[in-house]
């Protein structure tokens, strides 16, 4: 079949077989996951994005200890400090590195807290959607027949509508609130996961180890979740990283339109919306900085996802 092998690929296994355990340190142990990790590190852009992402997540988690001010605590906010440009100092000597908003809130603190809400809503909705999507995709691939037809029809129907429209429809029907936004995001996302997982699970379904497990009378659920799922997972990770980015963007969009999270828990999108009225009078910092933060967050997620896709996609294998 394969006439010409690339020189390196042909040489490496021979070397391993020939020398056996003579020089074990020269042959890195290469589980598929480790190989992927190594390939991932080949792109400096992706590694940088991953580092940024880790910093942002840590900042969101430890927000109360990092920010100079608690933006929800009304006692620490002074209306006299409202609308100060970046770098100004407050009455009691605090420096507002990114300026203040209309209520005199330190923008930097508000942004870190907003990051918290944005990442929180995105991650929670993504996790729930993953559980739903995985179950549906696995069930479709495992059972086949009318179960598969029904489920996949539903997925097709869902995916034929743009996410913003579906989310808008749901928010119009359900009303506002964090739980409703999460629900809307779950409904928007589950179909992507279901379709991806069904695709990769179908491949696994026809492999011998699954046949063997069924033949050994291992329970259906066990075959699905402990045998098929781990092997069908890699493509889902890519989709999950990209979906998380789009979930965060969608939440921000809904909040900007005034249909997302309530005013008491301002996400980045809401901070940007709040700054819109001041933008026209030239006070750019209230909208621009939260937007930049949102951009960095979404872009680093997408960059990581993009590199993961290249690593996992077998077509790109050399």
């Amino acid at each position: 079949m394969r006439v010409t092998l690339p020189f390196k690929a042909a040489a490496a296994p021979i070397a391993i077989e020939g020398e056996g355990e003579a020089r074990p340190e020269r042959v890195p142990r290469s589980s598929p996951w480790r190989l992927m990790l190594r390939e991932f590190y080949e792109s400096p852009v992706a590694v940088g994005a991953l580092a940024v992402l880790v910093v942002l997540i840590l900042a969101a988690v430890f927000a109360p200890w990092l920010t100079p001010q608690n933006p929800y605590d009304l006692r620490s906010i002074d209306l006299l400090d409202a609308l100060l440009p970046p770098g100004e100092t407050s009455m009691d000597g605090m420096v507002f590195h990114l300026g203040t908003d209309g209520q005199g809130r330190d923008m930097l603190s508000a942004m870190v807290y907003g990051l918290r809400v944005s990442i929180g809503v995105g991650v929670i909705s993504c996790l729930i959607a993953l559980v739903v999507g995985i179950s549906v995709g696995l069930a479709a691939a495992f059972f086949g027949g009318w179960v598969e037809t029904l489920l996949m029809r539903l997925v097709d129907l869902q995916l034929s509508m743009p996410s913003i429209l579906v989310a808008l429809m749901l928010v119009a029907i359900l009303g506002q609130g964090v739980d409703k936004v999460v629900l809307a995001l779950v409904i928007v996302q589950w179909a992507y996961f279901a379709r991806t997982l069904r695709g990769s699970a179908m491949v696994e379904r026809n492999k011998e180890y699954v046949e063997a497990a069924i033949g050994l009378d291992v329970g259906r659920l066990r075959v699905m979740f402990t045998h098929m799922l781990p092997n069908a997972l890699p493509p889902l990770i890519v989709v999950a990283s990209v979906q998380l980015a789009s979930a965060i963007a969608l939440e921000a969009t809904l909040s900007f339109l005034g249909l997302g999270v309530p005013v008491t828990e301002p996400s980045l999108g809401m901070l940007i919306a709040n700054g819109f009225q001041y933008l026209l009078s030239g006070r750019y910092w209230i909208s621009v900085y939260p937007g930049l933060l949102l951009l960095v967050l979404i872009a680093s997620l997408n960059l990581v996802g993009d590199q993961l896709r290249d690593v996992i996609n077998p077509r790109n294998r050399r």
Binding site: A245, A249, A252, T253, F256, L257, G269, I272, G275, F276, L279, S287, V288, G291, L294, L295, I298, A299, L301, N302, L303, D306
Partner: peptide, 14 residues
Amino acid sequence: ILGFSLPTFWVGLI
């Protein structure tokens, strides 16, 4: 990728 990531509404403001 940046184009994908830019939130439409924020670009509008900019």
